[in-house]
């Protein structure tokens, strides 16, 4: 057995995860794991919505979810291994600072800008949620997944979102996204959780 599996195997794997019989169970388990990790980290209950599979034309991506010029925080990582793709947490500045307050044990409103410490706390949020999801998917499917360390980007929504489009657009004019959102009992968090499978034609065909 070669260590590098042929590309067809990888495509099939994402297809099964997104559209297969157990798709709902796998995705939900992954998201619940992500929410549990975040809950433990911030010391309060964070829940997560059921996963949706979105297909977004690349022309519409920059304004997906709001104004393309709004300042947002992205926590981004690459998914390597047998399943390939990208993962992104996208959150408003407000929610990012609220999370930093929770993580640092400060009163809400204490954090008013994102310094290095805040950014590294958010990187850890990305790590525990995105990698939490991916590890669960890996253990349920038996497909090894290797998430890269996360990077934090603070910039316009459009600029953060084009970052993920760039890796997809050579093959497709659409982004396929496994999407969910976190919820806090006290607060509607604008925290978008995105997993972006490496584009593969058979996945596109099955979804469209």
């Amino acid at each position: 057995m070669s260590k590098d599996k042929p590309a067809t195997d990888r495509k099939l794997s994402w297809t099964q995860i997104i559209t297969g019989e157990k798709s709902g169970i796998i995705l939900k388990a992954g998201l619940e794991h992500a929410a549990q990790n975040l809950s433990m980290m911030v010391g309060r209950e964070i829940t997560i919505t059921d996963p949706g599979i979105e297909t977004i034309p690349i022309q519409n991506v920059i304004s997906y979810g709001g104004n393309p010029e709004t300042e947002m925080v992205g926590v981004y990582l690459l998914i390597e291994g047998d399943l390939r793709g990208q993962a992104l947490l996208l959150l408003s500045m407000e929610d990012a600072m609220y999370l930093v307050d929770l993580l640092m044990g400060e009163d809400p409103g204490e954090t008013t800008s994102l310094d290095d410490m805040g950014q590294s706390a958010l990187a850890e949020v990305g790590n525990l949620t995105l990698s939490g999801f991916l590890n669960t998917v890996a253990s349920l499917t038996g497909i090894p997944v290797k998430p890269s360390p996360p990077a934090v980007v603070v910039d316009m929504r459009g600029s953060i979102l084009t970052m993920v489009v760039a890796l997809v657009a050579a093959m497709s004019d659409e982004l396929i996204v496994i999407e969910s959102a976190f919820k806090d009992a006290d607060r509607a968090l604008q925290l978008r959780f995105w997993i972006l499978p490496e584009p593969a034609l058979d996945v596109l065909n099955k979804i469209n």
Binding site: D155, M156, G158, S159
Partner: peptide, 8 residues
């Protein structure tokens, strides 16, 4: 107008 150009 091109909004939010990143690497584009």
């Amino acid at each position: 107008v091109a909004y939010g150009l990143g690497s584009c």
